[in-house]
Amino acid sequence: MPETNLPVLKAKDYASDQDVRWCPGCGDYAILNAAQRVAQALQLKRENTVFVSGIGCSSRFPYYMNTYGFHSIHGRAPGFVTGIKVANPDLDVWMVTGDGDGFSIGGNHMMHILRRNVDVNLLLFNNRIYGLTKGQYSPTSEQGKKTKSTPFGSLDFPVDPCQVALAAGASFVARSTDKDRGLVPVMQAGAEHKGSAFVEIYQNCNIFNDNAFAELTGKDTREDNVVYLEHGKPLIFGKDRDKGIRLLGLRPEVVTLGDPGSGGVAEDDLIVHDQTNKPLAMMLATLHAVFDADGNNVSGFPEPLGVLYAEERDCYETLVQQQVDAAIKKRGAGDLDALYNAGDTYTIGA
């Protein structure tokens, strides 16, 4: 059928008929909306698309997409994704997980799906709290977090998802927030990437961890606290776009742009983002805006949003299929009688 005859799908055509049951005001709505917009932008074939999730608030996601979906068990979505892709590499598979699902109970699988580079669009909803079990701290919660399970403050040091993803060998690592203008483009870049596309999305849980990312998403504060990464562009940020990041030796530092004669730094001296440069990506992954109780950024750094890293690398399921194809080419398609008769056979006479 020629492409022109295909119906053009609208974003709402990707919504299922099920009522969405997240809490009113939850950041998940915006992410669902963004996913449907990306699907529309790419005109994804609904019948070839599979959304797979684990357990948690975010993992209800597949029920709300008018595609194939699999709401699996806690932490194990990467296993299902891998099985689906190995069985049918042509499917377009998305994985939805959260900070608990993906980095606590499912931390092991996260590492392995990324290193295998299974072709999946992996959305990590990071709200730094356990929502579905009603408000315990999560592995990404800041140390000292007071919750029902940690009335005196949490003791464990948080895990950093983008750092882990890079260390595990993810071929695409990006970050955005539920309210950010960059969410759709970043998600779309991930969807277009062939391989494991890891997209961390800071997501507000307005019930159990409200305003966790307020400084990164608030209209008045965002531009000063976020640096948008663009491939080939210098790291400039700030409401007045007057700040940048440069390297002093191996140490990044925030500088004010301006005439060097009057104490400013020239744009040419800033770090130019190169999303193919893994050491740079790993450094950027360690930069975070950190806020005190009054909303002051005590680290001094902006939070990098956008694509930290992207590389082309063979996908696991492609390699699996190549081995199958090569074996068939070399030996011919399997013949059961030849299989049975292989090895030491012997005849017992009548």
Binding site: F80, G83, V86, A87, V324, K330
Partner: peptide, 28 residues
């Protein structure tokens, strides 16, 4: 036995292994 269309996956653990098998069944 790949020429029989056999795809073997040495998974990272027992749980991942069964989940992969279920995923493969879901995919047909």
């Amino acid at each position: 036995m790949k020429h029989f269309g056999v795809k073997t996956v040495q998974a990272e653990d027992e749980i991942a292994a069964v989940c992969m098998a279920i995923g493969a069944s879901f995919a047909g």
